[in-house]
Amino acid sequence: MRLLVTRPDEDQDGLAEALRAMGHQAIAAPLLAIRPLADAAIPDTPYQALLVTSANGARAVGARRRDMARLAALPVLAVGEASAEAARAAGFADVASAGGDVEALIELALRRLAPGGGPLLHVAGSVTAGDLKGGLEAHGFSVDRVALYEAVAADCLPEAAIEALGTGAADGVLFYSPRTARSFASLIRAAGLEQTLVTLTAYCLSGAVADALAGLPFKAIETATEPTQAALLGRLA
């Protein structure tokens, strides 16, 4: 299949490789651009652990050399395997994956950490899904959430997407977040290309992502059985 990939550029390569290994073609059509927040400051606090809810968060902290010098030895709890792999690539050695969503990450933290062991550091984007901080603080943890990057929505569909949709050169679209799905819905309507979707299947990471596509005339909407990339790619079969 020929699939539009709506993830940011930073997340395209690994996914494109996985799709090629399955016999599919990836068409890069990022709807979010990742921009580091240069003025973000991580408190000089003796943290118990680092929490990561996106690969971009892991990459952002890994790019901060001074902070990495004091944080690299911390255990890292990541929301999923992609975030865990990015944390390892950034230089963290003790990394565990919750293999799911924010609720799964909270459960992992409750198993691995103790409220009395010290505060937790959550590095993330300026916009996050779920309430990791509130969920853990309800169990007695202290959590510092620091936004290290922002994800800026595209103001128009990428040219690759317009061409693929207009020429019938796409069979489906991959969506990883409700925000990306909402952006796609808005941009596809603004471009007057809704009817190009009638032969396409939308592949969604979760029910919330699928809900954000309500009203668009996709041939079908497939939802992963769990919010992981492995489960999402499994729907392609």
Rank of each mutant, 00 (worst) to 15 (best):
L174R: 08
A129G: 14
L157P: 10
V127S: 02
L157K: 00
A138K: 04
A28R: 03
T199M: 13
G99D: 12
A220Q: 13
L110V: 13
D94A: 12
V61A: 01
L32F: 08
A124G: 05
A87P: 09
F141C: 03
A230I: 04
A28C: 00
A224C: 07
L136T: 08
A89R: 14
D144G: 08
A129H: 14
G207I: 05
G125W: 07
L121E: 08
D9H: 09
T6K: 13
E85P: 07
L120A: 15
E10S: 14
M22L: 15
V173R: 11
V209H: 05
V95E: 01
G134W: 05
I34E: 06
A153I: 00
E103M: 00
D155H: 10
G125R: 03
L3A: 09
E150G: 15
A72F: 08
T180Q: 12
S177V: 06
G100A: 03
A124Y: 08
G192Q: 11
A82R: 13
L32H: 03
G80D: 14
R182N: 15
G118P: 04
G192S: 12
F141V: 05
G134Q: 02
A40D: 14
E107R: 02
F184T: 01
E85K: 09
S126K: 09
A41E: 12
A96R: 13
V123S: 12
R189S: 15
R112Y: 03
T201F: 13
A29Y: 04
A41Y: 11
A104T: 07
S142W: 00
V127M: 09
A208M: 11
A72Y: 04
S206M: 01
L216P: 14
C156W: 10
R182G: 15
M1N: 11
A21E: 15
T201R: 15
L3I: 05
A69T: 01
P43M: 06
A58E: 12
A72H: 07
P115Y: 06
A72T: 05
A170Y: 10
T228H: 07
Q12F: 10
P36M: 00
F92W: 07
D94I: 04
A21R: 15
V146E: 11
P119E: 10
G168V: 01
R112N: 02
L113Y: 00
L77D: 02
N56D: 13
L136C: 05
L148A: 04
A78Q: 08
G99A: 03
A26W: 01
I188P: 14
L32E: 06
L157I: 00
D13E: 11
N56W: 14
R235Q: 15
E194S: 06
A124I: 03
G62T: 01
A129R: 15
C204Q: 09
L121Y: 10
V76C: 12
V5Q: 12
V76W: 14
R35L: 11
V5F: 07
D94E: 10
D67H: 01
Q229M: 13
L108P: 15
R189V: 08
D11H: 12
A104R: 05
A98T: 09
G99S: 01
G125N: 10
A55C: 07
S97P: 12
L193V: 06
A86E: 13
V209P: 00
S126R: 09
N56F: 10
G134P: 04
L200P: 14
A147C: 03
A96G: 06
V209F: 03
D131Y: 04
A109I: 05
